[in-house]
């Protein structure tokens, strides 16, 4: 799965422009399952198991990543942009991007620190002051390569480092996509439904329609979630810890999770000796917010790979958390479907 995650995270696919990610995943699963692409671009997959299921279970991961859309080009060739998804301005200045169909190189420029007053040395530029510089000298030169409306996304090297860590862009939620792909490639015990969803980062749009279409009884959202297990952060603020397994949520800003599923996940983890942890903070949200409200209601759980520096060009996960999340989700899906 590690190679798969590395390849998946490198594919560009900001919210609403997930087609390349969808094509990549389709290649991976087409020999194993029935699939179709719905009007919004969700990849909906039915994987026949060894046995028919008694309960319809859907597993969801989102294909989109945070990024940018070019909004305007100045007369001297600089690009204005809007953010797509929740990106902290602190991770923009000095970073690299790829822009448009031609994937030209760009950088987020910043006024040199030498020209900034002492009292403003740590003041971040506002979103309005930030711009992308592709080296164009004029609007006309820029327009040969980039049009307003084009996507831009973080350009970031994929690196394995330390004791089993991986750093890349878009691990949110390509790590989840990789788990689903592997579940499809390994024949499950019972029939399962999968949704590779679009537009999670801009309001859970894809999951809403995909869940309507699939109409499941149970659902598991497979995500990444923020881990604040970094230097100087106290225990109760760390949310979850890299290396301790998938983080299972009881509640976040969009969902109160089904207690029966929450308890079942921990029982299975204990029975099978799979590491997992509780997400220790009511924060964030994910596709479960749309999934559990679908039609007459869906019993839903979220299992997330802990991820440091979420929504930045340098997302960091620990690979063994992906493996233990995969084991937990596979076992839980089988248990729910039987």
């Amino acid at each position: 799965m590690l190679e798969l995650i590395k390849e998946l995270s490198a594919v560009p696919g900001i919210s609403g422009r997930e087609n390349k990610v969808c094509e990549f995943i389709t290649e991976q699963i087409k020999d194993y399952a029935e699939y179709r692409i719905d009007p919004l671009g969700n990849l909906i997959v039915f994987r026949k198991g060894k046995k028919p299921s008694n309960h319809k279970v859907m597993i969801d991961a989102h294909m989109d990543e945070v990024g940018f859309i070019i909004s305007d080009i100045t007369s001297d060739g600089f690009l204005h942009f809007v953010k797509v998804g929740g990106i902290n301005t602190a991770v923009l200045a000095g970073r690299r991007v790829k822009v448009g169909e031609k994937e030209v190189n760009g950088v987020f420029g910043i006024k040199p620190i030498h020209l900034v007053d002492r009292e403003n040395e740590t003041k971040l530029p506002s979103d309005d002051d930030l711009y992308i510089d592709i080296g164009a000298s004029s609007r006309d030169e820029a327009l040969k390569y980039v049009q307003p409306g084009d996507s831009a996304w973080f350009s970031s090297e994929t690196v394995e480092f330390g004791d089993g860590f991986l750093k890349a862009k878009a691990l949110d939620d390509r790590a989840g996509c990789a788990i689903l792909i592997k579940m499809i490639q390994n024949e499950p015990e019972y029939d399962l439904w999968f949704s590779f969803s679009v537009q999670e980062e801009t309001g859970l749009k894809g999951a809403k329609t995909a869940t309507f279409t699939i109409d499941p009884e149970y659902a598991i959202a497979v995500e990444t979630t923020t881990a604040a297990d970094i230097s100087g952060v106290k225990d109760d603020k760390r949310v979850c810890i890299l290396g301790n397994g998938g983080a299972v949520s009881f509640m976040d800003r969009s969902t109160i999770y089904n207690k029966e599923l929450f308890d079942r996940a921990f029982e299975i983890a204990r029975e099978k000796n799979i590491p997992c942890q509780t997400k220790m903070m009511v924060a964030g949200g994910n596709n479960a917010g749309a999934i559990h409200q679908s039609r007459g209601g869906v019993k839903t759980l979220a299992v997330s790979v802990p991820c440091r520096y979420l929504h930045s060009p340098a997302c960091v996960i620990k690979y063994k958390d992906v493996e233990s999340s995969y084991e937990l989700i596979s076992a839980l899906a089988e248990d729910l479907a039987k």
């Binding site: 750093k167 604040a228 520096y309 340098a314």
Partner: peptide, 12 residues
């Protein structure tokens, strides 16, 4: 050795 400069999550 490769490293990443820490970035504080929004909830903190």
């Amino acid at each position: 050795v490769f490293g990443v400069v820490t970035s504080t999550p929004p909830h903190l």
